[in-house]
Amino acid sequence: MRGGWRGNKMSAIQTIPINWYLLLSTVLFTIGVLGVLFRRNAIIIFMSIELMLNAVNLLLVAFSSYLSDSKGQVFVFFIMAVAAAEVAVGLAILMMVYRNTKSSDINMLNKLKW
């Protein structure tokens, strides 16, 4: 019996070594960051943010399982709930922006300055 510091039964998640989770999550997160940085379409940026969130979620679940501590998974639920709310509000804002500017290019939104 390997893994499970406190001698718990090994779960399905733990069949993959933790490093792979880390790698995947980093890749996903980087993609998300790059997406936010370089894309101009608001919807895509939005999706990139979701990607970043989910990269974190993935990591949280993985660690939670490895540490046999359920707090991490509880956190994931919170993040998902907040993300859902965020999407609702964010998409509504986007709709309004689109109606006003007839575009979803975020570079149009540079009025908030000086």
Binding site: N107, L109, N110, L112, K113, W114
Partner: peptide, 17 residues
């Protein structure tokens, strides 16, 4: 200093990252 506040969201994110 306020000139740093360009209003360009991409720039903000870039600086943040």
């Amino acid at each position: 200093i306020r000139l740093l506040q360009t209003g360009n969201i991409g720039f903000y994110v870039f600086v943040m990252v």
